[in-house]
Amino acid sequence: MEILRAENLSKTYGKGETRVEALKNASFSIEKGEFISIVGPSGSGKSTLLNLIGALDNPTSGKVFLNGRYIFDIKEEELAVFRRRNIGFVFQAYNLIPELNVEENIVLPLLLDYKKPDKEYIDELLNTLGLTERRHHLPNQLSGGQQQRVAIGRALAAKPAVILADEPTGNLDSRNSRDVIDLMKLSVDKYRQTLLMITHNENYAAYGDRVFRVEDGIVAELGGGVR
């Protein structure tokens, strides 16, 4: 089942001399439950791609369909709702809400939707992420690895259509990075989630079912050729 499709996606920043073509005519399709790694040098357009898929930014041209829905004509107010139900983000800098404890941070997307969190699911999630002991702690009482695990939990809480992770291990040491990647892989398998992850580390890229390489704004599938 196709969950995500991009058609001729392009993004250009600036004008005249400062004009940068961050993304050029990217087209691909992703099936539900797939784990996609995105690699590429700095400034190649990886983050732009992810932002466009996550509807955080508008493309210069091209289309993205998420769960069959064209996402760029959704109005701001509706888009927020769409985002919290269909897209989970994991940022490099965690971006947890500092005043909320671990559990509150995780269930936040559900609460924003005025839904009652499924207690069993959340407990299970906390358990899987190894945060059961820390559920009442505030972000600043956690290590970087733990914080990133909370962020993963938050991305998984609403069981979105896709999870977008932008260098989730960028701020972590190798042991914590490995944990985080393992957990992401585990979650994708366990909850049949679709994951797009940007990474610099070729080893972690190998976890993916498929690997996209972005260079100078051109997206290519490693071992698969341009699609």
Partner: peptide
Amino acid sequence: VMRAIGMSGR
């Protein structure tokens, strides 16, 4: 960040 997580404008 709140908006990215899905908080609406209202």
